[in-house]
Every structure is written in C-alpha cells, then in structure tokens.
Design a protein around this nucleic acid. Structure first.
Length: 168
DNA sequence: AAAGTGATCATG
DNA sequence: ATGATCACTTTG
C-alpha cells in the first residue's frame, strides 16, 4: 500500500492540485474498498482568494481550512451535494484542493455521492484514516489547465486564475 | 433554462 | 429569528 504521507500535504494547494491528479482516492465502506483515480481538481488559496471560503476569515465552517494539511474539508453545497476538499499546507494559512472528478464519476457532487462521502467525514485525517485516504502508485498523467467554475461571486482577477486541472 | 435543497452567515 | 447565498446535478 502506498498511502500518501503527511509531508506530501504540507505544500501549497496551487502545487498540490495538479500533483493530486492520477492519485488514487480510496474509500472503505463497511469493509468494501473502492479506489478511483483522481481526474480533476481545483485549488482555493488563502484569505486573499475571493473564491476561497476562507476569504471572509475564520468561522465555524471554515476553521478546518486553517488546520495543518492532510485532512478532509467536506461541506454541503446547495443543500444537496457534499463536496470533498483536501486541506493543504501549514497550520494557520487556509487553503485546499477541491476534488472535482475521479475515474468513472466526473463532478464534485457525483463522486461524493458514489463514495458515500458526506459531512460525517469532515475533518477526517487522510494520513491515518481507515475510511478515506489517498494512495500514490506512481502514475503521473498529462493534464490541462483552465479557469475555476461556479465562482461568479469572486473578483475578476480570481475568476481568471488558471487553478483548475483536468487529466487529458 | 430552472428547480431542488438545507447549512451557513450576516443582519436585526 | 429571518433571509440571502451557495466551489452542483438533473430534468425538461
């Protein structure tokens, strides 16, 4: 088993979003283990990023983004969809990578539905968890870069950042 | 194109 | 306590 270790997560979300492409998202549901390769990510970086949930500062919901990298940030979007993020970097600087797609399940809300990931797993430690973790089997795919989606509320500068990463 | 759905946060 | 907002998906 090649579970991704703590140090891997102690980097910038901007670098980790592309680095997470091709890694295996692993989920244990009542003893049944599912592994899917990550195919699409986006990064959200710091309070200065007006698209990042933490751009208004630390609140009950966003405090988890300020933790040390290597844990899950999961929130309910539009009252329907659970979205999975990987918190990254040093403690105190909020940043995360949104997992937007895996092999077979494109779309941030669809993959969480399939893997039964919801807010019960918010804060799950991906380094030690038996329910949710990431593995590296050495595969590094080619990918393309584009703008983030669904963030019309952000500043023009932030909307235009090339922070979405998709496997070819 | 538009609804569906509920946690979250700012306002009062 | 109330209301606006929202890192989406499905259906027509």
């Amino acid at each position: 088993m090649n579970r991704i270790k703590k140090e891997f997560y102690q980097n910038s979300a901007v670098d980790l979003a592309p680095a997470l492409l091709g890694k295996l998202l692993c989920r244990n549901i009542e003893g049944e283990i599912y592994k899917h390769r990550v195919t699409e990510t986006e990064c959200y970086f710091g309070e200065s990023d007006t698209a990042c949930h933490a751009h208004k500062g630390k609140t009950e919901r966003t405090k988890i983004l300020y933790e040390e990298g290597g844990i899950a940030y999961i929130y309910l979007c539009y009252g329907i969809h659970s979205l999975l993020n990987i918190v990254t970097g040093e403690k105190g600087f909020p940043q995360a990578v949104l997992i937007r797609g895996i092999e077979g399940y494109i779309g941030p809300g669809r993959l969480t539905k399939h893997l039964q990931i919801d807010r019960n797993l918010n804060g799950e430690d991906l380094v030690f968890s038996k329910k949710l973790w990431l593995e590296d089997d050495g595969f590094t795919p080619h990918y393309k870069v584009s703008k983030r989606v669904g963030i019309d509320y952000a500043s023009e500068e932030d909307r235009n950042r090339p922070w979405r990463f998709i496997v070819d």
